[in-house]
Design a protein around this nucleic acid. Structure first.
Length: 727
DNA sequence: ACGGCTTGCACT
DNA sequence: TAGTGCAAG
């Protein structure tokens, strides 16, 4: 039976921290003369003064806006200081901002779980820190309250900007008879004030923050008082806040979905959403989006703060607008080389600094054809296994481009002559690296737990000779999952050898299925220098299933073909993790039917220790709702249905009314064979009995997932504008 | 034929 | 899966 959690454990303390006009601040730190002046950061000064990408608050007062041209900005604010984004390899180079961003993250990650939400934003889960503070040094016990905290804006406090606001805030922060949730938020506010001061001290950057019971509200709040201020959203202020909040201000609703809500349902404020039943919203926008909308109307958002300090992908791109469109293969080649060079550089530093390896290379391009107005949509993106080394990346990217070009041309049934197109142009190119995984040594706590330490892993113990041996007989790509491209032929690369081997050519028309011996190698066993030279092939996701086998040598086994085709259970677990982590909606039938060691571990646990997981929303507005008898039944159904608790940020709406909830659950139940389904059966409470070093990792698997969308509404964007009416 | 360059994510 | 598209800043 579901056991009700104590109310207090649901009162999370979440903060969203947002750097103020970050790029401007970075430039002002570099050039302190600019401090206090209306300033904007601009890229590509050549055309109309370049495009603004960050604007200081002084300049905003004069009406300067992001997305203005440099020239326009000068018009509305003649004294504006325009600073150019650094340029490298003929394109904007954002690296200084990236590293400034990591400076900040490393400070903000000190007080709780931290999620890097973008280059200049993070979420923090300060629940534990706040609880601890409340227990040990509650605000009421402090003689002095941090001045920065006293400057907080507390939504719902009377006289918020009146003359005695500060006294009110001081009292709110340290009131001893306050609601428990408010006390926690007060602690959160103190902690955040401290962190912001620390950031200022160590980086010279100011930031704004929102402190609330969930991510959505914290994000909303951080933008309410900028720059350099913080805003607290007490539980009791939520209803009033959302009631009048324009729907488009809500994150995820600033685009077409928000427009559809306005024009099709007449929803102008978040509060207006309360008029609609969950079912109605689901009919219009699909199950996930519908439920999500229903919840945000009530200030409910269960999304957890992910403990992730690093980006999940790297990309480098450039546009070639209009007259500058690329017309020859050579020019494409040139720019692709530049982009790949930058990407490769960033991959290397990620490897060096974070011991992470990217596994997929993707190329995106935009092209136009005279006479076809939406020709630019049709250039397909292509991806392949990522091989490290600048030259390899360049080569693979070029091959991807050519493959894309063939498809693109195919749609026009036309042919290229030589290296010259006519009537064609490439208006955008970008390359990106994704599926970035930690090197096992760093975070593979589970493997360590089940197999003990892995001495052979330590890079110092591995000789260069071993390296060569291990790396030598490499598997080629199993390329069927990569669009018929076969970009990676077997090759031998010795440490120190950076030259590419010219036979890495896409063979589009022959897909061989070669059986080769496979000796995989744990990348973690290599020093980063060694990595740079030799990890190229073996780190590609070569297996058909995409299994990453990097850790086997960690276990001291020598893998061969057999294991390549039947990877060990631990490998599958390792691979399954990221998708579970993301809480994918789809539950695909997994090919894995074996009993994993993790499952065995759980099975040996005393069944009596299992109890049902309670999924309760972080912020409980139920009391409020009950009082108002607004959607109370739905709320309780949410709470008792595990699969509903993880709310999607947004999803494409689907065809109305063809199907609904019952087939959804039926569909889920069919998946009894899948490993993920088994995960669902695991009682979360048992995690507490695991050794601490793997608890967090297992916890990540157990996050609730979204429901598959069974309702179909068609696939074009147009359906945003065509929700069902009068249904 | 312009607002550039990145990210993350959902969907299919 | 790979590929597409939305959204945000």
């Amino acid at each position: 039976m579901p056991v009700a959690k104590p109310e207090s454990s649901d009162a999370r303390v979440i903060a969203h921290i947002d750097m103020d006009c970050f790029y401007v601040q970075v430039e002002q730190r570099k050039q302190p003369d600019l401090r206090g002046l209306p300033t904007a950061v601009v890229q590509y000064n050549s055309w109309k003064g370049g495009g603004l990408i960050a604007v200081s608050y002084e300049a905003r007062k004069h009406g300067v806006k992001r997305s203005m041209r440099g020239d326009e900005a000068k018009q509305v604010c003649p004294e504006i200081q325009l600073v150019q984004v650094p340029v490298a390899r003929g394109k904007a180079d954002l690296n200084t901002y990236r590293s400034a961003g990591s400076e900040v993250v490393s400070i903000l990650a000190r007080k709780g779980r931290c999620e890097r939400a973008s280059i200049d934003e993070v979420y923090l889960d300060l629940t534990d820190a706040a609880e601890t503070m409340l227990a040990e040094t509650p605000p009421e016990s402090l003689e002095v309250i941090n001045e920065e905290a006293i400057k907080s804006h507390v939504l719902g406090l009377n006289n918020e900007d009146g003359i005695d606001a500060k006294e009110n805030v001081r009292e709110w922060l340290s009131s001893s008879d306050a609601d428990h949730r408010d006390k926690l938020l007060a602690c959160g506010a103190l902690i955040v004030a401290e962190l912001r001061m620390q950031v200022l001290k160590e980086t010279e950057f100011t930031c704004s923050a929102g402190i609330a019971h969930n991510k959505m509200l914290a994000k909303l709040a951080s933008g309410m008082n900028k720059p350099a201020q913080q805003t607290v959203v007490p539980f009791s202020s939520v209803k009033g806040l959302l009631e009048s909040l324009p729907i488009k201000k809500m994150k995820q609703l600033g685009g077409k979905l928000g427009t559809s809500l306005q024009s099709d349902l007449g929803v102008n404020t978040v509060g207006d959403l309360l008029r609609f039943s969950e079912e109605k919203l689901q009919e219009c926008y699909g199950v996930n989006t519908g439920t999500w909308l229903w919840n945000i109307a009530r200030g409910i958002s269960g999304e957890e703060v992910q403990g992730r300090l690093l980006p999940k992908s790297h990309g480098s791109g450039k546009t070639f607008p209009g007259p500058r469109a690329l017309k020859t293969i050579d020019s494409v080649q040139h720019w692709l080389n530049e982009l790949c060079e930058e990407l490769s550089e960033r991959l290397r530093s990620d490897l060096d600094q974070n011991k992470r390896i990217a596994h997929t290379l993707t190329l995106h391009a935009r092209a136009y054809k005279l006479g076809d107005s939406d020709s630019h949509k049709k250039f397909p993106s292509k991806s392949c296994p990522l091989r490290y080394g600048t030259i390899k990346i360049q080569e693979d990217a070029m091959n991807l481009f050519q493959a894309g070009l063939r498809d693109y041309m195919g749609t026009y049934k036309s042919k290229t002559q030589g290296s010259q197109y006519s009537g064609w142009g490439i208006t955008g190119l970008s390359v990106s690296a994704s599926k970035i995984l930690d090197t096992p040594s760093g975070t593979c706590s589970i493997m360590k737990y089940f197999h003990g330490q892995c001495p052979p892993c330590s890079s110092s113990e591995k000789s260069q000779d071993n390296l060569i041996q291990d790396a030598a007989p490499l598997s080629p790509s199993e390329s069927e999952s990569y669009s018929g491209l076969n970009l990676t032929e077997p090759q031998i690369v010795f440490p120190g050898e950076e030259k590419e081997i010219k036979h890495a050519i896409p063979s589009l028309d022959h897909q061989e299925d070669k059986s080769k011996t496979w000796k995989d190698q744990d990348p973690s066993c290599l020093s980063s220098q060694q990595m740079q030279n030799s990890i190229a092939q073996e780190t590609s996701p070569l297996l058909p299933s995409g299994v990453f086998l990097g850790s086997e040598s960690c276990l001291g086994m020598s893998q061969s073909k057999q294991q390549r085709e039947f990877p060990t259970e631990e490998s599958r677990i390792k691979y399954a993790m990221p998708s579970l982590d993301r809480g994918l909606q789809k539950r695909k039938t997994s090919k894995d039917k074996g009993t994993s060691s993790i499952r065995r571990f759980f099975k040996t646990c005393d069944p009596s220790s299992f109890r049902k997981q309670e999924h309760v929303e972080a912020i409980q507005l139920q009391d409020v709702q009950a009082a108002e008898s607004v959607g109370f039944q739905s709320t309780s159904s949410i709470c008792s249905e595990p699969n509903q608790t993880e709310l999607p940020k947004e999803s494409i709406p689907e065809q109305t009314g063809t199907n609904s909830g019952c087939s959804t659950s039926a569909h889920i139940e069919q998946q009894s064979e899948s490993w993920r389904y088994k995960v669902d059966e695991i009682d979360p409470s048992v995690v507490n009995e695991l050794p601490p070093e793997i608890q967090e990792e297992v916890q990540a698997w157990l996050r609730p997932h979204k429901r598959p969308n069974v309702v179909k509404r068609g696939s074009s964007i147009a359906h945003y504008f065509l929700p069902a009416k009068n249904r």
